[in-house]
Nucleic acid binder design. Structure first.
Lengths: 217, 217
DNA sequence: ATTAAAATAGGGATATGTACCTATTTTAAT
DNA sequence: ATTAAAATAGGTACATATCCCTATTTTAAT
């Protein structure tokens, strides 16, 4: 069950303090070793592509430039199914957890977890299991309940909706967005309506929070 | 100049991973030791009050429940000037840096800094100096320039403005905020106008981003 | 080939926020 | 005691977002 050889870890996070923190936590004979690090998703992909067999676990932040942790997870899981992926997140966000599940992440922990939880999670996923932080269980449960209740509310946005949301967050008005995307303002309004529906927000303010929490920027 | 005795550190952060990370980074003979930790500002104050002489350095996150890192810094610096305060922040935000300066913080580093920078910062501040991450220098410089240019734009908000901003972020409309605070909608509008002015945002969307980045939630 | 979802676009009504003013009272600072 | 800032409140006009519909074309899936 427990493997005696060391597990090689690659970390992707744009916060050096988190990387160094994890490295330190795993330093003394834990059976895990951070052998590579990347400051964003693209860099992580490049390093994994260069030597896929070297790594056993990818620990990745959700919020990263160039390539988000979720997308990184999707790509990695598609190309290298043997690689276990542990997602790190700042926020306890239902849609994010859901996306992590759909991206086939093996684990999901919050950045406010400590050394013990990190080790537990690593142990679990390197032995073929999954590990979702217990803070997330009610979130996941609510999500499932909500979905059963209201058809498929699916807070998973389409590419176009994401694009519009990004421009909203960038403080463009609907008219400006319409011009930018060469579509009618009415179409933008339509996307806005769908965004509000899918995210369950009551106004643009909620959308902005949703976008920031889910790193759609 | 360099002290030979150990420097006792108390950390305040609601992210256990950051606390554990810093602890690990300072573990091996660095001359610094984390002897106490707190999950929020209030807890930190309580522990410092209980034994003020014990700690040499307070490392605190900005974003914390109950009592923010900035307010914590103000209180601590007022009561115990001997205690050096190092502020930790996720974001490179001009108004936040400014508030840190005005709260008499000894240092300010970002969470994407590594072990080396942390040690440099600690060394500097425990020897009577200050340490502001170099990423912040242009931010501070721009801030000063802006101020010289436009009277005192001072993105430092009043208590009432902060209160209104919190309710805006909580997705209340101006009318609802007015009812909640028992004031006129017109007064709320006035606060909104001042918020836009002070933060330099062009709409509520910007305010929400400002609030989230500066942990006014 | 059929179906469902997404992206497109419109009309029309209403709600909410923003810009530009003025003005009084309270609070804090010199 | 004087001054400045903050908090209060109002009017008016305009901009923007939201809600209620319907409807066509494109794209993806079974």
């Amino acid at each position: 069950m427990t493997s005696t050889e060391k597990n090689n870890i690659i970390i992707a996070d744009d916060h050096q303090m988190i990387i160094d923190g994890i490295k330190s936590m795993l330093a003394s004979g834990t059976g895990y070793e951070v052998v590579e690090e990347a400051a964003n998703g693209q860099e992580a992909i490049d390093k994994i592509d260069a030597n896929p067999g070297r790594y056993h676990v990818l620990i990745t932040d959700i919020s990263m430039a160039l390539l988000s942790g979720i997308d990184l997870c999707r790509i990695v899981k598609d190309k290298y199914p043997h690689l276990k992926v542990l997602i790190l997140s700042m926020y306890n966000s239902a849609p994010m957890v859901k996306e992590a599940v759909s991206a086939e992440a093996d684990g999901f922990i919050l950045k406010n977890s400590g050394r013990d939880e990190l080790l537990q999670a690593l142990h679990r996923i390197t032995n073929g299991g999954t590990w979702y932080a217990e803070e997330l269980l009610p979130v996941i449960y609510n999500q499932i309940q909500q979905e059963n209740k209201q058809r498929q509310l699916t807070a998973i946005l389409t590419d176009r909706e994401r694009e519009v949301l990004q421009l909203i967050v960038a403080e463009y008005t609907s008219e400006e967005i319409a011009r930018k995307l060469s579509i009618s303002k009415k179409t933008v309004d339509n996307h806005r309506a769908h965004l509000l529906e899918k995210t369950g927000c009551k106004s643009t303010i909620g959308l902005v929070k949703y976008a920031l929490e889910n790193e759609i920027t």
